[in-house]
Design a protein around this nucleic acid. Sequence first.
DNA 1: TTGTAAGCGTTATCAT
DNA 2: ATGATAACGCTTACAA
Lengths: 334, 334
Amino acid sequence: MNRRRPTLEQVAQHAGVSRATVSRVVNGSPTVAAGIRELVLRSVRELGYVPNQAARSLVTQKANSFALVLPEPSTRVFSEDQFFPALIRGVSQELEIVECQLVLMMASSAASSARIAQYVLAGHVDGVMLASIHGPDPLPKDLASTGVPVVTNGRSLGASPVPYVDVDSTGGAATAVRYLIERGRKHIATIAGPPDMVAGIDRLAGYNTAIVAARQRPIIAFGDFTRESGEAAMRQLLEEEPNLDAVFAASDLMAHGAVSTLRKAGCRVPEDVAVIGFDDVDLARYVEPPLTTVRQPIFDLGRVLARQLVAMAAGTPVEPSVILPTELVVRDSA
Amino acid sequence: MNRRRPTLEQVAQHAGVSRATVSRVVNGSPTVAAGIRELVLRSVRELGYVPNQAARSLVTQKANSFALVLPEPSTRVFSEDQFFPALIRGVSQELEIVECQLVLMMASSAASSARIAQYVLAGHVDGVMLASIHGPDPLPKDLASTGVPVVTNGRSLGASPVPYVDVDSTGGAATAVRYLIERGRKHIATIAGPPDMVAGIDRLAGYNTAIVAARQRPIIAFGDFTRESGEAAMRQLLEEEPNLDAVFAASDLMAHGAVSTLRKAGCRVPEDVAVIGFDDVDLARYVEPPLTTVRQPIFDLGRVLARQLVAMAAGTPVEPSVILPTELVVRDSA
DNA sequence: TTGTAAGCGTTATCAT
DNA sequence: ATGATAACGCTTACAA
């Protein structure tokens, strides 16, 4: 119950050496005699000494922790979509290797940007990861300009020179649409993601690229990655383009919503209308019909994000961007 | 690009006052003249001063942050089950109110318990929340015994005196089973959760209570909250008790797995066998048939968890346990 | 190889 | 109401 933890000083006294020596032992300095080292280590154990991080940070100017900033109102982050948990898992695993901690920050509002900036400037973390940013968020640039290492998930809109990691949304989307084209679909629509998010923009770009190459006409509706928005977008498409025969949705949830709407409208999937999603969430396997979709490696995304940041914090130069591959998973919906 | 942030000292010089005065202004002390305050605040703004948290922590012995420890290998935490995101969201929201940060720690192995203990003892956080603990994990007690405020999600097995917050698993399960009984079901089985987790134990207890009260015979199979385990458990039940007419599963995912198995076996749900789940994840609404289930307020759980911890850290005494209500949501599967 | 001593940037206790 | 000044616990030149 002795609330005050023992200090370096006390360990030093207990071992009969100086503070400096204990510090050296604790930090694994090679310049200390084997005998003394043992002696000190025993004292450390006996007293249950644990270095005080605040004191250490104060002098080393390192916090040994990194922040992951998540835009709380993001429709993607907290939906069924397993993006968020998988990302965190990847990040954690990577940070554990370098014995650093993960500080999670929700950017719940514009005001919280200021809060986050303050926190970072207070020296609480050695670097910041920003995920699924909306629009021209100034936060990445603002943070980076203070000299803190910053890496984002997806290039940030607004052409800031912040290193980023992303999955190949464009390529994945194009592959999916090409698959539809190859299977003879002639009127391929897309339910795109929000036009202020990189994931939305890139998947739409991939769709457009493939459509243009095949000399088809783009048929576009927008959603926000949620199932409800997918349902609504599909209703709209059906109304405006009743002869469409395929849909590429920028998320599995929207694809699932689209399937619901199609069925209500009496369309068979995939016979009348083929549907392809994006993400490959668990759900995709279990809905009726199982969804053909573009798989993205979210866990790896998290790992790489963390790895890049750690490298930057260590002063190692990193590539300005890393793109992870996506993969078409063919099931029954297309 | 000036990497070194300005210090209290510099602000003091700039404003022509002493460090102490600046400190008072920054911390909102009332004992400072209005004129001086303005002067200092201007300097703070002009220099972009942000207090160094490490220095502050060193003297105040407060970290202004709290840890949430998640057992990484938990089958619940990172599955489709939205437990984890919802919990984090609740915790974050509550911590934001008191301007504290959330440090996320994955307990990926037995070894990481030591890591976590070290981290906490290093004074990095002012308190710890532990979620969905497996078995007789010594971590809660170990941490609490060092004097750090600790609160767990679910009472910890092994009768330690750590305050906890939980949902009413027992009551929810009993309500579900009673509902089945009232609807005339005579052979009600359960697919229970892991017997080393409180959520598993309590839901089974609720089932047993209702079954005994109705003088029925318990029919039990175990799963680990995942869909696959639900499928397997259902197969086993069907083999051993072919005349069962209802199943209460301790998670929606297991309920969904059970439905799959039942259908493959040619049973109609709910006509031949009624199924009730637990959690009310989004999925429950979208599967065929939509799942009758017990809803638990995970977001609130997170909030209360954080609120209790903050209170403890402030020295306020808290109730040894808080139980949040659950609610039966009737849909089509029962 | 080991010890001495000077900070790191705050807060808090005194005087004034 | 304000200002010295002493901690807080650690790392790290520099000296020995």
